[in-house]
Design a protein around this nucleic acid. Structure first.
Lengths: 127, 127
DNA sequence: TATTGTTATACTCTATAACTATA
DNA sequence: TATAGTTATAGAGTATAACAATA
């Protein structure tokens, strides 16, 4: 139930930017790993590389992401955010902070801290 | 990340029963609300009533669920689990307990209790 | 008129397999 | 031979709109 609420609120806050959780992930990863290759990005977000193609096509058409053929290995594309893409990420991060604030308001600071700590403990347990 | 881990583990434990989280929800709800109508079940699990039809078709073919035309309102179907369905639910619940145990083992009893309490607090905040 | 279950249809997201161009 | 990106295709899972039967 917490999860459903979380996604509903996330989507409400970011839907007008046309950013899904998956796209937000792509933006974050490309911001922090400029020049990443498609196969490596696919691996990072847990998608098959073929599934990434239409997603990148969309983002490229939106002028958010650019593919640049590698000069070292002409089979690979180096990906990076455009200026517009960086700007979109900044706005998306602002919205995500609003989304997180709205969620955290129901918990005290120490409850929030504790929740995150417990979830991280769970996430680390790769059973 | 906690969520991804949770779903992966759930699916690993229940995949050979061919039970998805959605199906588990249907079984639980029908067990506790015998004779529920399709529209009401759809509402309960947050699906459109048209989306429920193929799911019920599958479960009916598996002899897990039965549709019974209402004698009071012949437009409606009353749904209930077959004996086989009840048995499947019992086994599924056993598996879910294993799944939950495996997850909880990384937390102490009081941490588990606290986590559930915090998530419920979040879930209630229908922002 | 309104509602229940159903169908036809379409859209999104994902994977697998096969292709091409490089390496 | 092997790899990167792409394409064709298919399968879930979902929704919307329209329909027949019934209320």
């Amino acid at each position: 139930m917490a999860q459903v609420m979380f996604f509903r609120d996330f989507n409400r806050e970011l839907s007008d930017l046309e950013i899904t959780p998956a796209i937000f992930g792509v933006l974050e990863i490309l911001h922090q790993n400029k020049g990443l290759t498609q196969t490596r990005l696919a691996l990072a977000i847990g998608l098959d590389r073929s599934s990434l193609v239409p997603l990148l096509d969309k983002l490229q058409k939106r002028k958010v992401v650019e593919r640049e053929v590698s000069t070292k290995d002409r089979r690979s594309n180096h990906l990076h955010l455009t200026a517009e893409g960086e700007q979109l990420l900044v706005e998306a991060e602002r919205r995500v902070r609003l989304h997180e604030k709205r969620i955290q308001v129901r918990l005290t600071k120490s409850e929030t801290r504790h929740l995150i700590q417990l979830l991280m403990k769970l996430a680390k347990s790769n059973v």
